[in-house]
Amino acid sequence: MNLSEVLDIDPDLLNYVVIPLLIFFARICDVSINTLRIIFMLHSRKYVATILGFFEAAIWLLAISQIFQNMGSWQTFLAYSGGYAMGIFVGMMIEERLAIGNVVVRVITAKPADELISFFKEQNMRFTNLEATSGDGPVNVLFTVIKRERLPHTVGAIRKHNPQALYTVEGVKKVSDGEVMDDKGFSRRIFRRMS
């Protein structure tokens, strides 16, 4: 007894629609998981990355086994490729929503940074302010390390208080400051952001 008889589905419908759709969604899942696994690896979350790797491999094996069983169908190849592309997109959206990790924000402004410094102090953010010289004259350079989830609020303040400022944001793997690296409630934050 074959799969179409077990599921009571027309064999053509199974081979040209159902299996390609299953492959498409399996690829979305495994590529999204791969994206998250890499992010967790970069943030030294070895246990989470290991578990995600297991599920990624299992889903990939299911998808590739269906490809090999349906080698003559262009729909399965299209579903495989389309699912891979969509999985990248979905994985990036999930990663943006989770906002895992820390970033260093560097602000360079010719305008006095007093209001921005006041904002950093009000938010209990640690920062460093340097007076420097650019090709156009004196500037202030501010550095702060924050949790990535606070980035939109911080960038909003930079744009509000120093709209002409140049700012850069870079990911940080490790920070020696326990206050920034506090991971209490890590799992709770992940599930809250995903919902």
Rank of each mutant, 00 (worst) to 15 (best):
M125L: 13
W74M: 15
T154F: 12
D8K: 00
G171F: 06
K160A: 13
Y80C: 15
P112L: 07
V104F: 12
I38P: 05
M71I: 14
T133F: 12
I38D: 04
I108D: 06
I158V: 14
Q66K: 12
E131L: 13
M93E: 12
K160H: 15
L3A: 03
G53K: 04
N70K: 09
M93D: 10
V107D: 09
R126F: 05
N15W: 08
A58P: 11
L21G: 06
H161C: 09
L13P: 00
F120H: 07
I67L: 13
P20H: 08
Y167R: 07
N15H: 13
N2A: 04
M181W: 10
F186M: 04
I88N: 15
F54H: 03
I33L: 08
K174W: 05
L3Y: 03
I33C: 02
H43N: 12
I51Y: 06
S44V: 09
K147T: 13
M181I: 13
L78Y: 15
V6T: 08
P138F: 10
A58H: 09
I64D: 02
L62V: 15
F127N: 06
L22A: 14
L61K: 08
L3M: 07
I158H: 10
K46H: 10
S65Q: 09
S81T: 12
V141Q: 11
D182V: 10
V172Q: 12
T35Y: 02
Q164A: 11
A58S: 10
I28Y: 01
F55V: 04
I19F: 04
I88E: 10
G171H: 07
L166T: 04
A165W: 01
A157S: 12
I19H: 01
S134I: 09
F120T: 06
E149I: 14
M1Y: 04
L98H: 02
T35K: 03
L98N: 01
Y84E: 06
V18H: 03
N124V: 00
V141K: 11
E149Q: 15
K121M: 00
I67H: 06
V155A: 14
V48D: 08
E170N: 11
I23V: 08
N15T: 12
D114V: 01
L116A: 06
Q75I: 06
T144N: 14
V18K: 03
L61W: 11
V6E: 08
S32P: 00
A49P: 05
N140Y: 11
N124K: 05
T76D: 12
N15G: 11
G137V: 08
I28L: 02
V18P: 00
V48I: 15
A113F: 03
R193M: 07
I33G: 00
S118H: 11
G156S: 15
E179F: 12
D10V: 01
L36W: 03
R148C: 01
N70H: 14
R188I: 05
